[in-house]
Amino acid sequence: MIEILRSGSHICIVDIGREGYQNYGTPVSGAMDMVSLARANSLLGNKMNDGILELYFSGHQIQFHCNTHIALAGATADLTLGDKNIYIDQVIKVNKGDILSIGAMSKGCRLYIAIAQGIESTTLLGSKSPLSGYTKEQIKKGDKISIKSTPLALKKFATRSALNIDRTKKIQCTVGPEWHKLSKLQQEAILSNTYVINHQSDRMGYRLDGPSLDIDPFQILSSPVMTGTIQLLPNGLPLILMRECQTTGGYPRILQVLSYDINQLAQRKPQDEVQFELTDRFR
């Protein structure tokens, strides 16, 4: 078992998400940064879909009530286990009673903590990831989470590569279904503007601040949307749909973020900048 001694901004349990229920309006959800989920799980030889902790920002403290092994991936942060400094991208042995503290983050904003053999928690529709309105809104101070206490066989696992977090990297997008409804000038503006992530951004979507597009606002008849879909809001600003987004929407879908770059966005926080770049390849 592990215990949350202090919860900074937001902690949740995630995996690869809930597939196969979007026709019932169920968001896919899952880890915001899937690359780091895979990285952390793979370091321990866990299954890709094992539940792990997603920690947003710093200020968290977790105590382990049994011996285990952990691996961290994603954001770079000041990390201590007891009185030792520890680092991401490594397998770390944890002893019963150890306290893991997550301090300031210097790169990225989401840290993933995988625990040997995964976290035990309620599975809804095949996933442990948040389902708004039905799973616990967030994990808080004093909460206890079940883990399996079994020693890890000491061997090297085939590991997945880490995400190269780069705050200045342009976000690669393909055109969205309604891109063609914008004028050449409007298209060029979106691709040359520098947007800033608004504070009203979460696992559902990122609102952006920046030069507002001069448009006659239009909507479409509700049609499917997905993670990475960039909608154009009536105020002329883009909204990026993230992992817990709704399954259909009525705002024009102007761009679609490449799957890989959604992970890059997951590591950007409010006040960080975003620029879009068009590509014609899905990669």
Binding site: E19, N23, P224
Partner: peptide, 13 residues
Amino acid sequence: NEIVPGYHSIMIY
């Protein structure tokens, strides 16, 4: 994997 309809559209995953 998934077939998701809208008013006049279908998304196939």
